[in-house]
């Protein structure tokens, strides 16, 4: 990759001259760091990369990346990014969004990006709260959440974002966590390699309005017991000694296996055609089971923009027509 045209990239090359203005201690800083690390590792060229965001704390992201960036309007980033990618498939197009932006006001664009398999890499910072508007419950907040707009606890049931994306036909679905820098960087690299829509849900701590949302499984002392690393071709094992596993019954209901039953642990296949195991993991109770991170699903499927531009290419080769030809169509007549 090293040449005059494609110089080796370093993390600092992606930094802009703008001061980063997230709250001190915000999980967004470590995500920015991981993205810059992944981009440097992948040798992404500044001018070939476009980052499009919606509205919210996370959507300030483009201002901090020395690439092309477009900070758009609430929820619409996938729609704008679709226009960018569909009209110029050579661009490397990333969407940065939050759980309010993507799951609530932009839910429609999110599911349709998944359905079409547009070549977008969508990073959704999920802090399970509205941060920029100062702390209302989000569509990913747990039921009963007490916030400024739900003093008696929210009545809403939350989305399971990976399950939503899976139902919408997503072809690459992964999850990582802000504080797991190496895992996050690796996950971003995997998303980048995918053809079609890649969706990465990133658990991100909002230390102002929802501090400790993920503490129950991310704190160092509980992490090994509470986090399940999905590894392609490996059994679903967790615990410091990998002495516990996840198995499924005939209805794809998960249960924990230990001891002699450990061999029953399900062998993870991220490329499986059936969405059932991924759906089971995406919807299993956070209280009863460990929280899965890694790649839930990775399926090869032609990308939307390839099909769209492919039709144009074929049509151009099959039919040559000038504007004059076009105007002269139908029944024409001359007046002398």
């Amino acid at each position: 990759m090293t040449s005059v045209d494609r110089p080796v990239m370093q993390k600092k090359d992606y930094k802009t001259d703008q001061d980063v203005r997230w709250c001190p201690g915000c999980g967004d800083y470590s995500i920015l760091n991981a993205v810059q690390g992944a981009f440097a590792k992948l040798g992404k060229q500044l001018h070939e990369t476009v980052i499009i965001s919606g509205i919210g704390c996370s959507s300030r992201f483009p201002y901090y990346m020395e690439t092309y960036g477009f900070h758009t309007i609430h929820g619409r980033a996938p729609a704008i990014a679709t226009g960018v990618k569909a009209s110029n498939p050579n661009l490397d197009v990333w969407v940065v969004t939050g759980d309010g932006d993507a799951m609530s006001i932009g839910g429609n664009h999110f599911i349709h990006a998944m359905r079409r398999n547009v070549g977008l890499k969508i990073l959704m910072f999920n802090n399970r709260i509205y941060g920029l508007t100062k702390g209302q419950f989000s569509p990913c907040s747990e039921q009963g959440k007490v916030t400024k707009s739900s003093p008696l606890g929210s009545v809403d049931y939350p989305f399971a974002p990976i399950a939503l994306a899976l139902g919408a036909g997503g072809t690459f679905l992964a999850r990582s966590i802000d504080i797991l820098g190496a895992h996050l960087e690796d996950t971003i690299c995997k998303a980048s390699a995918h053809t079609g829509t890649a969706y990465v849900e990133i658990y991100q701590n909002c230390n102002i309005f929802n501090d400790g949302a993920y503490k129950g499984f991310t704190d160092k002392d509980v992490r090994d017991e509470r986090v399940l690393h999905l590894q392609h071709g490996q059994p679903l094992l967790f615990g410091a000694k990998k002495d516990k596993g996840i198995a499924f019954d005939g209805n794809f209901r998960p249960y924990i296996v230990t001891g002699a039953d450990l061999s029953k642990a399900f062998v993870w296949d991220e490329t499986a055609e059936t969405p059932a195991p991924a759906m089971a993991l995406a919807t299993m109770s956070e209280a009863e089971f460990p929280v899965p991170i890694g790649v839930f699903r990775r399926r090869e499927k032609p990308a939307f923009e390839t099909g769209l531009q492919g039709q144009v290419t074929v049509a151009k080769s099959k039919k040559k027509e000038t504007i004059k030809d076009l105007l002269m169509q139908g029944e024409i007549w001359d007046v002398k």
Partner: peptide, 9 residues
């Protein structure tokens, strides 16, 4: 929005 994205590109 897609048209805006196209113009942007």
């Amino acid at each position: 929005c897609s048209a805006i994205g196209a113009s942007y590109s």
